[in-house]
Design a protein around this nucleic acid. Structure first.
Length: 284
DNA sequence: CGTCTTTGACCTGCGC
DNA sequence: GCGCAGGTCAAAGACG
């Protein structure tokens, strides 16, 4: 474990605020905004130099191009159709529909899954590198992604899962490198990218890709995880109520049997809560 | 000794 | 086709 990066996880998790930026429609690559673009929300975004159009609640072309090459702004629709249940509205919490689906993308039998390779946990090479299997001209298939911005002094935030770093790259127009992590579970294809915002060095941008096919390995000291972890769990099939500190979210309420509206309402509550925390944080 | 990080090389996609 | 930037691989080294 990289204990040197997590010397004080308790402080980190209890004082952080995090929020989702929005979801990107895979069909037209447009970046949408989850919160509807109220003045209050827009002013928060503008602090980071990103401005929403007041009527369309979408990013300007300039901001979109500025952002598109760097991070994913939320959940993207998988080309495997894993998220087809999500209504194509700007305010829809696309991830909610995915939760009710029993691990669709992970259990997918698609042999084209680019992440369907050894995670290298045991140092074993993949049988056949997926990049060699993928036919020329075939587009890389992306897993659903979710991005978070978190004020934190540490780059790699604890989220209950174990990660192996497999790469680091310098990012254009940013003094901070981007790190690439893969879940250490050999059967899990989830990846995440971690980078610091070039606009605000105190902000860590974490992007999850895929869904965990297993439970967490345990909780950090203090038993409190940040909101990033909450949404990371959202993408997994096993969601623990521990991920939602202060919010009543019974385990059974997250089963596929749950009413979609009820689930969406709970998620809205969570998002508004994190948005409020963010406002407090930005006033400092 | 097993696990994890580092890092240069390589691959891929995309815009021009 | 070329160049650029993002993403991944894998050997080497560090660490506990």
């Amino acid at each position: 474990m990289d204990d040197k990066e997590r010397s004080d996880p308790g402080t980190c998790f209890t004082t952080d605020s995090s929020w989702t930026l929005g979801d990107r429609d895979a069909a037209d690559e447009s970046v949408n905004f989850l919160f509807g673009g109220s003045d209050r929300e827009s002013s928060i975004l503008s602090q980071f130099g990103w401005n929403l159009h007041p009527e369309t609640s979408s990013f300007s072309d300039h901001d979109r191009s500025d952002l598109a090459g760097n991070i994913s702004y939320g959940l993207t629709e998988s080309s495997t159709g894993a998220l087809q249940q999500a209504a194509p509205t700007t305010t829809n919490l696309a991830g909610s529909a995915d939760v009710s689906t029993p691990n669709p993308s992970v259990s997918s039998s698609s042999s084209e899954d680019p992440t369907e390779k050894s995670t290298g946990s045991g140092g074993k090479p993949p049988e056949i590198p997926s990049k060699l299997v993928r036919k020329k001209g075939q587009k890389r298939i992306r897993q659903p992604r979710f991005a978070f911005m978190t004020k934190s002094e540490v780059d790699h935030l604890e989220d209950g899962y174990r990660w192996r770093k497999y790469g680091q790259k310098a990012v254009k127009n940013s003094p901070f490198p981007r790190s690439y992590y893969r879940c250490t579970n050999s059967k899990c294809t989830v990846k995440k990218r971690v980078e610091r915002s070039s606009e605000d060095s105190t902000v860590v941008i974490t992007t999850y890709e895929g869904q965990h096919c297993h439970h967490t390995v345990g909780f950090p000291r203090g038993g409190v995880l940040n909101h990033e972890a909450a949404f990371a769990g959202h993408l997994s099939t096993a969601i623990s109520p521990y991920y939602y500190p202060g919010i009543h979210m019974p385990q059974e309420s997250l089963t596929p049997a749950i009413d979609e509206r009820q689930k969406t309402a709970m998620e809205l509550t969570l998002i508004k809560r994190t948005l409020t925390m963010m406002r407090f944080s930005s006033r400092k």
